[in-house]
Design a protein around this nucleic acid. Structure first.
Length: 648
RNA sequence: GCCGAUGUAGCUCAGGGGUAGAGCGCUUCCUUGGUAAGGAAGAGGUCAUGGGUUCAAUUCCCAUCAUUGGCUCCA
């Protein structure tokens, strides 16, 4: 409660202190410690980010934020976007500004250059201008103006974008922020002055539709990132380099896993022998895991009549975005490439009468599906036009939904842990809260499905986040996001509850009351798609796959060609022990062979020479670790078997 | 689909109006070497494709295709 002359502020640690009315965030920070006073970038008061120099108007919660706080970075990058705008105006004059928000790793500004075309080559000059302007230590002044004045200001400036933004704002006072020679419409939350921005890197230029709507004008978006210290920028750029080294497109090529062919078509991955073998091992692993918990494997064709997808609702929803229909020469039939496996599985369900005793019926298929994706969206293996889902559909009674859902969660846990994804979170994807026209099915069924997901996730103790407008058009989802070895988030597995398809396909079972009932369907794919999963696995492991998956587990390195015969014998024995291996028979020195094997990320190198031949042994060297000593092949194969068992 | 960039040897890339270069890889020869690069020689490219400008285009211009960073979309 604030009195006339003082305010009370609650700090993040729960402590409460009283300050005179009109105290600024900066004064509060300085009162805590000299260090905080120096490093503070902003304040979060009652959940709102505000500048340190603003007097605090009312009592409430306060958090002084620094660079290390997320809010600190947000304010820092937001301020940097203003600085970018100032630089652009200084360099190019008549520039219209859209929005310039902070993002996960930096900031961007959407601008309209009129006729001028900006390219990457212009970025260094803009960067230099920003750094130059930053040195002015221009204070970010936040102030209120009447809406009429705000309109007049941007009217005079001819900035139709800001005017458009203003239309959407409530009448009354509008907040502006001014620093140096630049004034912008802005909600607020800036660092004290531009001098804090010490290192800037403008990353790229891209097109972006105004307000994200493709019917609107396309603006030029400039992406950038900035830091309070040069060293932090260098570190950031190093991280990007590291990510680049792990890029699955690069590693996939280097390791001979997959390729694309212009003649085959964009977005259609081709699996090379090593990649295909890796993929098969993943499939085998999944088949086994599913078999253990009662899934039945099925196989369905790659095309189906249009009517199937009319029934399922996919035609109405995605017909226009599908590959063109395949028409038969004389019968006038119209087929579509399979974009989903579920309609086929529904037909399997329908193929014979079902009793409540048959449920749950769990049909699994590594189903290859084809979807027309816009050309600009294709990306390596993560976004393709033809891919294989580790798909399955659980048909069950309404009373079994939650239990079945939980079993699927367990399966996903098992898969993730076997593959080393220990850090993940689950996202409950629900409908758009306003626009429900995008979805099919009754309100009642949606409510039931959403409830089942939320409860199952809770009972499994999952840490979940809720995302609206992320549901599939026929039902809500539980999506699993894993965090990879360098901290990036990827969406992998998904589980979806569906009351709608059973309805549309008129699926039934006979209950113990001898009446007909409608089953519920659960769609699920722990990997999501094999393509995408392998892409993520490549980037997560940097191409150093778990031993049980890796295409080449060992390589035999003879010291000279005098030992080639023995090398062949060793290879034979390895094959017998089911160890995937090859021989490096080149006329190179051992150092070179070792180097190449290390670079190729082969887990084990078996070096053989005079000593090994005499002892009937191999000298084992482990990738990244070095020499682990000499042993018999039997011992080596035990070693490998042991390592595989620990990991799965 | 839209905006920007890119496309030269198997890979990574340099070059530049007068029909091309490096490193790695590959082949052959010499070397027979003990835990991250031994030496030499050689093969390999219609400079993405199609037009245009020019005496001459891989180089400049246009279009197409593909890749790529974004936007939109994502069953």
């Amino acid at each position: 409660m604030s009195t006339g002359s003082s305010i009370e502020l609650v700090f993040p640690d729960g402590s409460l202190r009283t300050f005179p009315q009109g105290t600024t965030g900066a004064q509060v920070a300085a009162s805590i410690s000299e260090g905080l006073g120096r490093t503070a970038l902003g304040a979060v008061i009652n959940g709102r980010q505000v500048e340190l120099q603003r007097p605090i108007a009312e009592s409430g919660t306060i958090k002084i934020v620094r660079w290390d706080d997320d809010e600190g970075k947000t304010m820092f990058w937001h301020s940097s976007a203003h600085l970018l705008a100032e630089a652009l105006e200084a360099l190019y004059g008549q520039v219209k500004f859209g929005i310039g928000p902070p993002i996960e790793n930096g900031f961007y500004y959407d601008v309209d250059f009129g006729g001028h075309k900006l390219s990457d080559a212009d970025l260094p000059a803009i960067e230099a201008k920003m750094l130059e302007l930053a040195k002015n230590n221009s204070v970010f002044n936040w102030y209120l103006v009447p809406k009429a004045d705000a309109l007049a200001y941007f009217e005079a400036k001819g900035d139709h974008l800001k005017l458009d933004l203003l239309q959407g704002l409530q009448d009354g006072d509008i907040s502006f922020v001014r620093h140096g020679n630049f004034t912008d419409l802005c909600r607020g939350g800036h660092v004290p002055h531009t001098g804090h921005i010490k290192a800037i890197k403008l990353m790229s230029v891209a097109g972006a539709y105004w307000r994200g709507d493709e019917k609107n004008q396309m603006l030029t978006r400039i992406y950038g990132v900035s830091f309070p210290k040069k060293a932090l920028l260098d570190e950031h750029l190093l991280r990007l380099e590291e990510a680049k080294k792990r890029d699955h497109r690069k590693l996939g090529k280097e390791l001979g896993l997959f390729m694309f062919s212009q003649k085959v078509g964009q977005g259609l991955p081709i699996w090379l022998p090593k990649g295909a073998a890796l993929r098969e091992r993943l499939e085998r692993f999944m088949r086994q895991a599913q078999k253990e918990i009662g899934y039945l494997q099925v196989i369905t064709p790659h095309i189906a009549l249009k009517e199937l997808y009319v029934t399922s609702g996919h035609y109405e929803k995605y017909g226009a975005d599908s590959f063109r229909a395949i028409d038969t020469p004389s019968e006038g039939e119209s087929f579509f490439l399979k974009p989903m496996n579920c309609p086929h599985h529904c037909e399997i369900y329908k193929g014979s009468p079902r009793s409540y005793r048959d449920l749950p019926l769990r049909l699994a298929e590594f189903g290859t599906v084809y979807r027309y994706e816009q050309s600009g969206e294709l990306h390596g293996l993560t976004r393709v036009r033809g891919f294989t889902q580790d798909d399955a559909h659980v048909f069950c009674r309404p009373d079994q939904v939650k239990e079945e859902f939980k079993k699927v969660i367990d399966l996903i846990f098992k898969v993730f842990s076997a593959l080393g994804f220990t850090d993940f979170e689950a996202q409950v994807s629900l409908r758009d809260q306003e626009d429900r026209s995008k979805y099919i099915g009754t309100e009642e069924n949606w409510a039931k499905a959403e409830q089942a997901i939320i409860e199952a996730a809770q009972e499994k103790g999952l840490h979940t986040v809720t995302a609206y407008n992320e549901a599939a058009f026929y039902g809500p989802k539980l999506d699993f996001m894993v965090r990879d070895a360098i901290g990036r988030k990827w969406q992998l597995g998904t589980i979806q509850v569906d009351y709608n398809l059973p309805e549309r396909f008129e699926l039934e079972y006979v209950g113990n009351d001898n009446e007909r009932h409608r089953p519920v369907m659960i769609h699920r794919a722990p990997f999501g798609s094999l393509e995408r999963f392998i892409a993520v696995l490549i980037e997560h492991t940097a191409g150093e796959f778990p031993l049980w998956l890796t295409p080449e587990q060992a390589i035999v390195l003879p010291i000279s060609d005098r030992f080639l015969d023995y090398a062949e014998k060793v290879l034979n024995q390895l094959n017998k022990c089911d160890i995937r291996a090859s021989i490096d028979a080149r006329g190179e020195k051992i150092g070179k062979k070792i180097r190449d094997a290390e670079l190729n990320k082969v887990p084990y190198m078996l070096i053989i020479g005079e000593k090994e031949v005499e002892a009937g042994a191999v000298s084992v060297r482990k990738h990244r670790q070095g020499d682990v000593g000499s042993m018999s092949i039997g011992r080596f194969s035990d070693l490998i078997a042991e390592e595989i068992n620990i990991k799965i």
